[in-house]
Write a protein that binds this DNA or RNA. Structure first.
Length: 260
DNA sequence: ATGTCGGCATTGTGCCGA
């Protein structure tokens, strides 16, 4: 089973690039972030024509997450628990029924800039809610994949120029500590199972020629429960997509899970 | 210091969010 996470930065602006990617080497499941549209505005037909079921959790203009799946999905849940007043569409989960059943969670964690300030407070509060959701999911002792745009640079090696991010909400000590608290529940950063060291990025800003200079950061992550980590066969960052026409500023992170 | 996008309110372009 292949599961990819991809912040597409607007489904309507990115539909053709996304379809080209799916046609070339589509994963079984794509967890999308920043669809930037309401559920009824999502262009479902071309994805359904390619055999993908489409589950969305959108809102007007900003944020929004979705699951595309060639496998059957059960028990779709929209919205991160823990704050009934939170109107931002940043979380969707479902159980994918492949050769093994996997709980797949797609997330778009708040950016949090400027920090400090109310947006940063919201980010940290959202991360506390994510920690609670992760605890509950881990208690099921089932394979769980929580993948998406975490807007967290975990360590200095995850930025080309870490000094430039020192005061940024993506890298501040409180942000990284909150991310570690989640990892320390017993989750695995899938990318780091296979690849150590610096220079592996999932995001390059549109500004300042960041892609051409390889001035990137690793902020898209897949966190695995122990039962999912047991299944992990491969992880790759599909960096080449960043060099295409009309790219997103993020690239896909793709996992292969296989039993036995 | 700045450099770019996507979406929106709008028919020109400036604002917001990233």
């Amino acid at each position: 089973m292949q599961i990819a996470s991809f912040n597409i930065n607007g489904i309507r602006a990115r539909a053709q690039a996304l379809l080209d990617w799916l046609d070339e080497d589509g994963p079984d499941i794509a967890l999308l972030q920043e669809i930037k549209c309401t559920d009824d505005a999502f262009p479902r037909a071309p994805f359904e024509d390619r055999g993908y079921r489409v589950e969305t959790h959108g809102q007007k203009s900003f944020n929004g997450v979705a699951i595309l799946s060639r496998l059957p999905l059960e028990d779709v849940v929209r919205g991160l628990p823990g704050d009934a007043d939170d109107g931002q569409a940043r979380w969707i989960e479902a159980t994918a029924i492949g050769d093994v059943a996997v709980r797949v969670c797609g997330l778009y964690l708040p950016n949090g800039n400027p920090a400090p300030g109310p947006k940063y407070d919201y980010k940290l509060a959202w991360m506390a809610r994510l920690e609670e959701r992760a605890r509950a999911l881990l208690a099921t002792e089932e394979p769980v994949v929580m993948a998406g745009d975490y807007n967290v640079i975990p360590q200095a090696e995850d930025a080309a120029r870490p000094e430039a991010w020192a005061e940024d909400a993506l890298y501040r000590p409180e942000t990284r500590a909150a991310f570690r608290r989640i990892l320390n529940l017993g989750l695995t950063d899938a990318f780091r199972v296979q690849t150590r060291g610096a220079g592996h990025f999932t995001f390059w800003d549109y500004q300042r020629g960041a892609w051409e200079r390889d001035d990137g950061i690793r902020i898209d992550h897949a966190l695995l429960s122990p039962q999912a980590a047991d299944l992990l066969a491969d992880v790759r960052i599909e960096a080449a997509l960043r060099g295409r026409d009309k790219p997103s500023d993020h690239v896909p992170l793709r996992l292969t899970l296989s039993p036995g």
